Amino acid sequence: MAIGILTGSGTYALPGLESTGPLPVYTPWGEALVSRGTWAGADVLHISRHNPGHPRLSNHVTHRANIAALKSEGATAVLAVTVCGAVDPSLELGSLVCFDDLHFLSNRLPDGSLCTFFTEPGARERGHWIYERPFSATLRAALLAGGAEAGVPVVDGGCYGHVDGPRFNTAAEIRSLAAAGVTAVSQTAGPETVLCGEAELPYALLGFLTDYANGVQDEATPVSTLVDMMAASADAFGSVLRAAVPAAAASEQTPPGIVYRFTASD
């Protein structure tokens, strides 16, 4: 049993992870590179979405392979981090947000296909993921407690908006997301949330605000600021995750909602 950790831009490894990885794990949806080791006193499975050196842009991330690999390797829960563009103008850059809601209307993978593991009619595992909130309350509590222990403030709650990359969004697009109540956006965590739900893997997401999305402020965030903030995110994420992982590993994990599966009599 292990805690899965998914990291993105700026965080390509877990500092101090005792691991023999990353090693390939083969799934029906392709190969994922997984590092298994001991970190913060717990057994963890780490995947860098973009891989070291960032060869994979957001449109190259193999979400189904990543989540399937974590599940097959024994992950019981998944903690994920992502750098974000702020849509809420009241939040300062450098803020950490522990999200409690999701805006992902397209529900599609980078290749345009629907975001689901359930692609075969009649397959026994097929079903509808039904829930009130998509993120695990237990894992959210672990992240919030981890922030408090590490002395890193974390905003409790916010709506994560998934947007398709690799381009950034126009001001008009951001206005529509703001009207829907989105707090911050990035280009990777929507599919992870849905696929973990279908795989019955509890999942929680922590965001670090690196820039203001287009139109949120009168002046655009300089690219140099975005780059500096992205570099700073690694230390912030590492501190919170290191404190949160033991609590996540020690707690009883229950996936949010259920996957309603049809039987022959339905």
Rank of each mutant, 00 (worst) to 15 (best):
E120M: 13
P110W: 04
G122P: 14
R124D: 10
P121D: 08
H128S: 10
R108H: 08
R124G: 07
L102E: 03
A123V: 04
H128P: 03
A145W: 01
L109R: 10
E132S: 14
R124K: 12
S106A: 15
C98K: 05
L144P: 00
W129H: 00
P134N: 07
F99K: 00
A141R: 15
A137K: 11
C115R: 05
L102P: 04
A123I: 02
H103Q: 12
E132D: 15
L143M: 05
H103F: 09
A142C: 09
E132A: 13
R133K: 13
R140D: 04
D111M: 06
E120K: 14
L105R: 15
G122S: 11
R140C: 08
A141M: 07
T119C: 13
A142H: 02
T138L: 03
H128K: 00
Y131L: 11
P110V: 10
A142R: 02
N107E: 14
P121A: 04
L139R: 04
V97W: 00
F104E: 09
P134L: 11
H103K: 10
D111K: 05
T116A: 00
P110D: 03
S106M: 15
A123S: 12
W129Q: 03
R124P: 08
R133C: 11
A142Y: 05
P121F: 03
A145D: 10
N107L: 15
A123E: 10
E125T: 06
I130M: 13
C115N: 06
W129N: 05
R126D: 06
I130D: 05
E125I: 02
E120D: 12
D101V: 07
R124A: 14
S106I: 14
T116L: 01
F135V: 06
R126F: 05
S136T: 07
D101M: 02
F104M: 08
W129Y: 07
L109Y: 05
T119G: 10
E120I: 14
F135C: 02
L144T: 00
L114Q: 13
A145V: 01
E132M: 13
F99C: 02
L143V: 08
R126Y: 05
G127I: 01
L109E: 08
R126W: 04
L105E: 15
E125K: 09
G112C: 05
L109W: 02
G127C: 00
P110R: 08
R108D: 06
G122N: 12
P121V: 04
T116N: 00
I130Y: 03
H128A: 10
R124N: 01
S106Y: 14
A137I: 11
L105S: 13
S106W: 13
D101Q: 13
S106N: 14
A137G: 11
D101W: 07
A145T: 05
I130S: 09
N107S: 14
W129K: 04
D100G: 07
A145Q: 06
H128R: 06
H103N: 12
T116V: 03
C98P: 03
E132Q: 14
N107R: 15
T138V: 13
V97D: 01
E125R: 09
S106T: 14
D111L: 11
H128E: 06
T119L: 12
R133T: 15
R126H: 12
P121S: 06
L105H: 13
R133A: 13
A137S: 13
P121T: 02
N107A: 15
A141G: 09
H128T: 08
C115G: 05
F118H: 15
L114R: 15
V97N: 00
I130L: 12
T116F: 02
